[in-house]
Design a protein around this nucleic acid. Structure first.
Lengths: 209, 209
DNA sequence: AAAAAAGTAGACCGATTGGTCAGATTTGTA
DNA sequence: TACAAATCTGACCAATCGGTCTACTTTTTT
C-alpha cells in the first residue's frame, strides 16, 4: 500500500508514466490508449501503472493537472500602466514557445475541450473564468486610455489562443502543407507573423530596435 | 448482399448513421464511440449499421469524407484582380458560418488532425496542398500589387483557420467563460471582430456601407 | 538485523467491443 | 404472383481492456 507518496522512486516513476501517458493520449485519445500501452512505453508492467494511479481516469486527471499547473504567464500580472504592445507580444511569444516545446500537452487539452471538458475540475473552470475577467478588464482599460484600438478584449483573447495553440494541435496538417515539420526557425517566423498581425490588428506596434 | 448502393432506403439510412456517428465521434472520439451507441442514436440495431458500413473504420472514413466534401468556398476561385478585403472577409464569414452550423464536423476533423491525420487519404492531402499553393499565390500577388501589407500568406491562412475553427472546436471552453453557449448574435459579433482584426492586421478595410 | 513499508509482477476475471453468420422479412420488378 | 435482390435482426464469438488479488522482492526505518 503506498503511504509515502513522495519517495524518490515514486516521483520518478510517476513522472515517467505521466510523460508516456501524455504522449499517447495526445496521439490516440483517452479511450484509444490502453494502460498496457502506457506501461510498455514507460518500461513498466501494467500492474505497476495501476499501483501509482489507481484508475485510468485517475492517471488522465494527473496528466491534465500537470498540464494546467504549468500554464502561467507574465500577462497574469499585467497592470493598467503597462504597455499593451509589449505585453501582448510577450504573451503570444510565451504561448508559441509552449506550442513548440509542449505540443502533446496542448493536444491533450485540446481533445479534452473538444470532447466537452467534462474532466476539468470546477475549481479550474472557475479560476480560468476569473483570470479571463481580469485580463478583459486590463485590456479594456488600455482601450479606454486610447492605447489601442477598441477591439473586443474577450474575442481578442480567443483569437490569440486559437492561433498559438494551432501550431501545436494542427502540426500534422502544417507538416503536410510544408512538406516537413516546423523547426525552431519556422516557429520564430510564425511567432513574428502572428505578433505583427495581432498588434497591427489592435492598432499597436513594437518599438524598433 | 448490398448491390444497389444508392436506393432510397440505403441512402436515407446511411445519412442517418453518418449524422449520428459524426455527433458521437465529436464528443467521444473514434475509439470512445461504440458501434452500439451509434446504432442506438440512429434508432437502428447494431447489425444494421454494420450492414451499411462493413467496419467501424469504414464508417469513420465515410464521416470524414462527407465532412471534407462540403469544404469549398468562393475563395477557391479568387483571382488576382479581386479585392483582398472583400475576399478575405467573405472567406472568414463562410468559415465562421461553418463553425456555427457544423460544429461536430469541425470537431471530428480537428481530432483527426490532432491525432496525426493518419485516416486522411493521400488524394485529400495532395489536393489540400495544391489548394494552399494556389491561395498563397493569389495572396502574394495582392501583396505585390500593393493591395495589402506584406504578411506571410501561408501563416495568414493558418491564423484564419485557427480562429474560425476555434469557435466550433473550443465551444465548451467559450461556453464556460461566457456562462452560456454562443448564439447566432454572438457568432455575428465574433465574426465582425475577427474580420476586423485580420483585415486591419493586413492593412485592409471594408468599404463602409 | 528485523520489521515495516514501498514497489514489482504474474495470474486472473467480468465486461465490453468489433465483427460474423445464418436466417427472417421487406421491397422492387418481370 | 413469383422470384430475386435488398434489408433487417438476434444469437454468437474471439479479443481486448480495466481492474483485482495475491505473493514476491526491494528499500527504508527502527
Amino acid at each position: 500500500m503506498p503511504v509515502n507518496v513522495s519517495s524518490k522512486i515514486s516521483e520518478k516513476n510517476r513522472s515517467i508514466i505521466i510523460a508516456a501517458a501524455e504522449r499517447l493520449f495526445a496521439s490516440n485519445g483517452f479511450k484509444g490508449t490502453s494502460i498496457k500501452e502506457i506501461a510498455d512505453s514507460a518500461g513498466l508492467p501494467k500492474t505497476n501503472v495501476l499501483y501509482y494511479f489507481k484508475t485510468k481516469q485517475g492517471l488522465y486527471h494527473a496528466v491534465l493537472n500537470q498540464i494546467l499547473d504549468v500554464w502561467n504567464s507574465r500577462f497574469d500580472q499585467a497592470k493598467e500602466e503597462d504597455d499593451p504592445a509589449l505585453t501582448l507580444a510577450e504573451y503570444i511569444y510565451e504561448k508559441m514557445q509552449n506550442s513548440l516545446h509542449n505540443p502533446c500537452a496542448s493536444k491533450v487539452f485540446a481533445i479534452e475541450i473538444i470532447n466537452g471538458g467534462h474532466n476539468l475540475s470546477d475549481s479550474f473552470l472557475a479560476e480560468h473564468k476569473k483570470w479571463m475577467e481580469g485580463r478583459v478588464t486590463i485590456l479594456q482599460s488600455w482601450i479606454d486610455q486610447g492605447k489601442m484600438n477598441a477591439v473586443n478584449p474577450e474575442y481578442l483573447l480567443y483569437h490569440i489562443w486559437a492561433c498559438t495553440q494551432h501550431y501545436a494541435d494542427f502540426s500534422s496538417q502544417i507538416t503536410n502543407l510544408k512538406g516537413k515539420p516546423m523547426k525552431k526557425g519556422d516557429f520564430s517566423q510564425a511567432t513574428d507573423e502572428l505578433i505583427n498581425l495581432i498588434l497591427t490588428g489592435c492598432g499597436l506596434s513594437l518599438p524598433k530596435e
